[in-house]
Design a binder for these strands. Structure first.
Lengths: 334, 334
DNA sequence: CTGAAAGCGCTTACAG
DNA sequence: CTGAAAGCGCTTACAG
């Protein structure tokens, strides 16, 4: 059986392919009588337009690329789920679909071939940008509209949506300092991510504004994985005696840290206070429940998606950004 | 500046577009000298082939559609993360990309328009199938290769990958019965999912093989959300006095159930034993740690992706399935 | 209100 | 080893 195309429908009805196209898209008024016959033929022939052909002819794909973290991180981090839910809810509503890419840059070459083999997209959403981000570079080179989820290195010429992470970490550290903590370990994320920088800045500002000193030795960078949080923290505390508090990059690392503390017989919160960021489900479930910075993850995803659609559809041209307020949720761990 | 197409490159080099195409794809031997000049022109012009045009001409998209749960569920369930990670790892390696669809059937009409507006795909992965699944119907109608993650209703004519959930629940209930529990509540998922059926079957078989009776009142269906698990469980225990164990559809529901038990001052495990399925990160972190059935989620995702690629590339034609063994991981809750 | 035709940018069978 | 040309299945500017 031959493939049913727009031509098949046109011939059956006795009109041109153009008329069928217009009737279906509604871009031109076609008489009711003809429209009805077309619709009926579509039904009878079970005609399904080729989206590929449509994409090519109209130069529009209704598809957005979502550049996410490595799958290893996705497996452990609920933060991704929330962002994703926000993104999907908005995009589906606006009739866009999403192409999901996990990041494999770490394991393979920086000139990852996938970047060029990529499916055609109308726009891109880039999560958790790096300093000197090759994905952003790549997208920019191709002049594809994009919105960064997080804060990009060059803030002036990108659209982005982020929580006010620096203010958030300022609040966390301030909160701990007011409670009398003086030696606070920051289990930060990898240096390559701009988010790590922002967290460190908040940390430093809080110390400075309280006229207190911190040491660079108290700040360590660690991949965002539970096991790494656990492993690196055990090593760190050997070199940093008498610490009384730990702030982590995210909930996942916090879980690793809390496990290390338990094994080290350092009671939380009586001996050590722990504060994380993300406020994902884990923080409520963990025992002790973890004090965590809520960064409005779902909202970030949703706003980024909305912004991207606006950019794609040219309702916004000039780079802008949206900063979501954070909120510290106190629980048992501090 | 005009768009750089294969024609631009061809003209610059002084060959035909066909030659450029062949040189780039390697589908025909082109002399080294010409190839070099083409590669150089590609570089100089920063030529990027239009994937849309390629898709149309070659009738191949290198794209797979992943039909996932509603975003509401995605937000709470790590099981999705693990499946997704397995799927992405394999698919990326095989050079396929993934189009992600969340399910909105619940909220909108069953003839969801998105099903037809969908981007062109070479194959589909359908998670958590329903009884009488419209997605499967839709994909089948379009004759698109697909693999079900989970077990479809019509087992004979679909490819699918699933854990041996029935054996798993048989093992769980058997384990609880051997421990002396007699009245075991099954907080099952919604009836529309085939997974709920499989769980119930395992539950019933264990009772039968132990020559014991269960009551239909002990089996309740609940949407796979923490809050629902909490809410419905509180209602259920009013009608089922003296129960001593609870088995849940997944970890998310278990969290809700455990919260309800805590509020009801029913100590776990001394008064009530709880066993879930999924063995996601949550089960280790929760206090008490949750006994859970490991269903090899990452493996399921990876195998399903592998199978799908085989089907797409016609290395497999006849419907087959793969059943992953489950494993009960004992923790504090039982 | 509708049609004929060009165009989107590739791939690939046909021919030499 | 390479080219000319048809074809993939749509959309849309041009024309009437």
């Amino acid at each position: 059986m031959k493939k049913v195309t727009i031509e098949t429908v046109a011939q059956k009805v006795g009109v041109s392919a153009a008329t069928v196209s217009y009737a279906l898209s509604g871009k031109r008024k076609i008489s009711q009588e003809v429209t009805d016959r077309i619709l009926q033929a579509v039904e009878e022939l079970d005609y399904r337009p080729s989206i590929t052909a449509r994409n090519l002819a109209s130069n529009k794909t209704w598809t957005v690329g979502l550049y996410a973290s490595p799958t290893q991180n996705i497996r452990e981090d609920y933060f991704f789920n929330n962002i994703l839910a926000g993104v999907l809810d908005v995009l589906h509503e606006r009739k866009y679909q999403v192409h999901l890419y996990a990041d494999y840059l770490n394991e393979k070459s920086r000139n990852h071939p996938d970047l060029n083999l990529t499916q055609p997209i109308d726009g891109a959403l880039i999560m958790n940008p790096r300093i000197n981000d090759v994905y952003i570079d790549h997208i920019r080179q191709r002049s594809i509209p994009y919105v960064v989820i997080g804060t990009p290195e060059e803030r002036d010429d990108s659209f982005y949506v982020d929580a006010d992470v620096t203010a958030g970490y300022y609040a966390i550290v301030n909160y701990l300092l007011k409670k009398g903590h003086r030696k606070i370990i920051l289990m930060n994320g990898s240096v390559e991510y701009t988010q790590s920088e922002k967290r460190k800045t908040g940390y430093m500002m809080a110390y400075r504004d309280n006229a207190l000193q911190y040491s660079e030795h108290w700040i360590v960078n660690v991949p965002m994985l539970e096991e790494e949080g656990y492993r690196v923290f055990l090593k760190t505390i050997k070199n940093v005696p008498d610490f009384t508090a730990v702030v982590t990059f995210n909930d996942t690392i916090a879980v690793g840290v809390l496990r290390a503390l338990k094994e080290s017989n350092l009671h939380v919160p009586s001996k050590v206070a722990v504060v994380s960021a993300g406020n994902t489900m884990i923080t409520r479930i963990h025992s002790p429940a973890i004090t965590s910075l809520d960064m409005g993850s779902y909202e970030i995803g949703a706003k980024a998606a909305e912004l991207l659609v606006d950019v794609i559809e040219k309702r916004r041209i000039q780079p802008s950004h949206e900063i979501i307020q954070t909120r510290l949720v106190e629980r048992e761990s501090s």
